[in-house]
């Protein structure tokens, strides 16, 4: 995180960040393709079949990394939001809004794969498990952010309002998480838990890590190309944009 931070400060002006992002996108795309390829191979052919859950468990190699990423991206957005509010840099707000759709997508994938996993394991698509519920609320927070930014025309206002909303959400997330957990333990209806616990072999853990890193690289690649579009859109009247090769063509 730290080395990236220094880079961002140097490149915090959209004009100098735009070409840099352009160079970074293919790199991260390549990393993402390779890692996800290796990860998928490992999850299908290397990781052993679980003696209790059979083959169906393999979906956790998508589910768990997606869930990690969904939370991690929200924190990264909060980081950009705070940076933008404190230093009033334009790029921070663009970064936050370019990450939001990817974060929402991972949240959705986590929920969806969770349902696919839940059906054979628990016999139901959805249980009001503490983690699932928290994840659902996280999806609401993402959607709220996207909706708020969509409703505001002025880009400066939408950046700052969005940043405030994310920060309020970040303060709230631990409270939401613990309240949901407590609520869940009180209602001991379905006594299932998503935790794998100690039964996880190290090969499974490695596969998950590789998948998570692959997702992470994917998120960076997508967010960067999205931020490039946002930069072009917002800076379309400036001279440096009109001098770009791809714009002149």
């Amino acid at each position: 995180m730290n080395s990236r931070l220094i880079n961002w400060f140097k490149f915090s002006s959209p004009a100098s960040f735009y070409p840099l992002a352009g160079k970074m996108v293919p790199v991260f795309t390549l990393i993402a393709v390779m890692l996800i390829g290796v990860g998928l191979y490992m999850s299908f052919f290397v990781a052993p079949t679980d003696y209790k859950q059979g083959e169906g468990y393999r979906i956790i190699f998508v589910h768990v990394p997606a869930a990690w990423l969904s939370m991690f991206i929200y924190l990264v957005m909060a980081f950009w939001a705070a940076l933008g509010l404190v230093f009033n840099t334009r790029l921070s707000g663009m970064m936050a809004s370019s990450l939001a759709p990817t974060g929402a997508m991972f949240t959705f994938i986590a929920l969806w794969t969770g349902a696919f996993w839940g059906k054979p394991m628990w016999g139901t698509w959805w249980v009001w498990d503490a983690r699932l519920t928290s994840e659902l609320i996280l999806l609401f927070l993402y959607l709220g952010f996207i909706a708020l930014q969509g409703a505001i025309d002025d880009s400066r206002r939408s950046d700052r309002a969005g940043a405030l909303l994310i920060l309020v959400g970040v303060v709230n997330i631990p409270i939401i998480h613990y309240s949901v957990k407590w609520w869940n333990t009180l209602h001991q209806g379905a006594s299932v838990s998503v935790t794998q616990g100690s039964s996880m072999s190290s090969i499974m853990l490695w596969t998950m890590l590789i998948m998570a890193l692959g997702f992470w690289a994917y998120a960076i690649a997508v967010a960067l190309s999205r931020v490039r579009s946002i930069i072009l859109e917002r800076e379309r009247d400036t001279t440096w944009v009109s001098e770009l090769a791809e714009v002149r063509r």
Partner: peptide, 10 residues
């Protein structure tokens, strides 16, 4: 007032 700049919309 020193070097003030304001942008509204675009």
């Amino acid at each position: 007032v020193v070097d003030l700049e304001c942008v509204r919309g675009d």
